[in-house]
Each structure stands twice: as structure tokens, then as C-alpha cells.
Amino acid sequence: MLTAIFAVAALAVAFGLLLGFAAIRFRVEGDPVVEKIDALLPQTQCGQCGFAGCRPYAEAIASGEVEINRCPPGGETVVLALADLLGRDAAPLEGGEQQKLKAAIDEQTCIGCTLCLQACPVDAILGAPKHMHTVITTECTGCELCLEPCPVDCIAMVPVKLEIATWRWPLPKPPANREEGPRP
């Protein structure tokens, strides 16, 4: 009886030490999961997920507070990638798939108020006070954050033009049997 107690106690101490040692020895600085999630997000900083940007959303996902399907700009691709990374189930995208849009300023109407410049999370709008603004199209993430502040509603979201260089083959219609189910 006594030996048993001692043995168990000794084991407990040994494993406690081992775990303590491991905790110090293999300590991970920061939270790499957040980094990994953030790397998958499209960085539109649009806030459509309900968070103030991509990184806050990544932190919320990492802490398990929210579903992984709240990023409309990322689309199904991001949901699948997140599901793969986190081992969670891929839920269907909230709000469905979106067309890719970019902001365009109607330069006739723009009054040069700089409000959109302040709203743009990636500094993709070029302009100065009382001078016409313009969107750097290549840098625009399509977050739509500039629409709301514009006092004259001169910003419109324009679909990205289809080009041969970026054209994608469509997925063939699946055979009648079923759509899902990879086989390893």
C-alpha cells in the first residue's frame, strides 16, 4: 500500500518536473497560430467579419470565439484553407461568394475632401485637400470602407475586368453522383 502511494507520488513528481522543463525549454514566443491565420486572410481590412481588420479576426479565430466562415472577400478558398489549418469543419461562407470589386472615384464629382484617404486601410487612394483623388487600382483591396465617408457619393465599386492573363478555367459540372468526398 505504502509503496504504491510512494510510487505514484514519485511518478507524479517526475512527470511534473518533465512537464515543467518542457514548458520552459519549448516555450513558444507569441502565438504562431494567429500569424498563420493572418497569413491566410486576404488583408482587405474591410471589417465585414465584424472585427476591426484581418489581424483582430485572426486573433478571434485563434481563440475559438468565432466561426471561420466570416470572411467574404476571402471566399471559399480561405474557408477551406482555414479549415485545413485548424482542423475545423469548413462551414459554408456567410453571405455567399462575392464578385471581386475595386473602388473607382468619379473624378468629376470628387470635391477633394480627403475623407476617403483617411478611411483607406492600405493607403490606396491618392490625393490632397481640395484636389481630385484617385484610386491606385493595383493596391485597392475592395474593402468598400471608403464608400461610407464620401460626402458626395462619388466612389463606386467596379467589378474587376476579366482578362486573358488572369482568366480561370471553370470547374466542370460534377458527375451526377456526388460533389464532395476526396478519397485519400
Binding site: 486576404p42 488583408q43 478558398t77 483591396t141
Partner: peptide, 20 residues
């Protein structure tokens, strides 16, 4: 073409992250 598109999007999002 999806993989190429994803690579383009990845580059764009990296760029957007840096800018942000």
C-alpha cells in the same frame, strides 16, 4: 488556373498587409 490565381491573391494580400 486556380492555383495561379491563389498565388496572385497571396501576393496581393501580402502587399496589402504590409501597406496596412
Amino acid at each position: 488556373t486556380e492555383i495561379w490565381a491563389q498565388e496572385r491573391e497571396k501576393r496581393a494580400s501580402d502587399q496589402a498587409r504590409r501597406r496596412h
